[in-house]
């Protein structure tokens, strides 16, 4: 079966979507990410969509689910590299992508993840 690779980079997971995914493949990725988050206890996930030529309602919904799933498992998720034409199209389509954090590049996304994860550990273990 076809899978989108999920890489472990330090304490984070990196998903780089390089192909135009059919719906089943997108669902498989969602399941794989959940499994991998549990197995690695990663604190953050970076989802790189810079190669995606479009995000329709199905892929948009999947991105939302992946972010929500990460949240439930105590991890932060950031979607990076959305092309401007894709962003324009998503808005016009009427999709809100609420709960999905975005950053312009992998570097900026990593930096954002760092900050979010640090904030999480601060709220969980306040210094008294």
């Amino acid at each position: 079966m076809e899978h989108i690779p999920i890489l472990k980079v330090g304490e984070f997971l990196l998903v780089s979507i390089q192909v135009d995914m059919h719906d089943r493949l997108a669902m498989t990725l969602q399941d794989d990410l959940t499994t991998k988050l549990v197995a690695t206890r990663a604190k953050g996930v970076l989802i790189d969509i810079s190669s995606l030529e479009m995000v329709d309602s199905f892929i948009g919904r999947m991105l939302g689910h992946m972010a929500a799933m990460a949240g439930v498992l105590g991890a932060e998720a950031v979607v990076v590299g959305m092309q401007p034409a894709v962003a324009i199209t998503i808005v016009e389509l009427g999709m809100e992508l609420t709960g999905v954090r975005t950053a312009l590049s992998v570097d900026k996304g990593m930096a954002l993840l760092r900050t979010l994860v640090d904030e999480d550990s601060f709220t969980l273990n306040p210094v008294s």
Binding site: D23, E53, M54, V55, D56, S57, F58, Q83, A85, V86, I88, T89, E92, L93
Partner: peptide, 17 residues
């Protein structure tokens, strides 16, 4: 244009699904 491509491709995907 790239925006035209992206919008038509997305609409096509929705209707095809």
């Amino acid at each position: 244009t790239l925006v035209a491509q992206t919008k038509m491709m997305t609409a096509t995907s929705e209707l095809a699904r």
